[in-house]
Amino acid sequence: MNIFRLAGDMTHLASVLVLLLKIHTIKSCSGVSLKTQELYALVFATRYLDIFVTYVSFYNTVMKLIFLGSSFSIVWYIRRHRVVRRSYDKDQDTFRHLFLLLPCLVLALVINEKFTFKEVMWTFSIYLEAVAILPQLVLLQRTRNIDNLTGQYVFLLGAYRALYILNWIYRYFTEEHYVHWITWIAGIIQTLLYADFFYYYFQSWKNSVKLELPA
């Protein structure tokens, strides 16, 4: 494992923990898109189908369990927690799951490297992860009012994607047969979705003003 991959995993982990801790401690999910969180829970569930069958390393298994556990916990908090669910901006978070789910499923059925259930589900999770942030970005754009933790959550997720690209570049040059077009293209698209957010995030940081997205 190279340094970019490890740093990518750690920012990914940090993003999820920031969100979970925010919800748990301030008992509010204001500004958080349930749609995005449900899509991530589905991403992990479909990608790690073989978690108890294929063993890669202790590190991998533990990380997978953390991502599965934290994503489903966040969804549970927003939907079921007595206090937290009242702070959910239901009327603003109107992005339709199906607009993302259906194209990803069709694409996974058509463009995959092997037509087996496991492989199609894995490919579906790659495509879905690329676009799962969209409901969250739309919600941020709509409410414009971004608290620090939600801003940090999106920033850390974007950093994780950028670091994974560096990891792929590194692996491409250091490992033989490391060519993964599907993962790379989906990953690059996913990272580009954050470009606009990053721009405003750095502007607000540079000028030390509160992060606000243009309408």
Binding site: R5, V56, N60, K114, E119, W122, H177, Y178, I182, T183
Partner: peptide, 10 residues
């Protein structure tokens, strides 16, 4: 398959 090689990624 490719996904088997890259299964070491999360």
């Amino acid at each position: 398959s490719s996904s088997d090689d890259s299964k070491d990624e999360l």
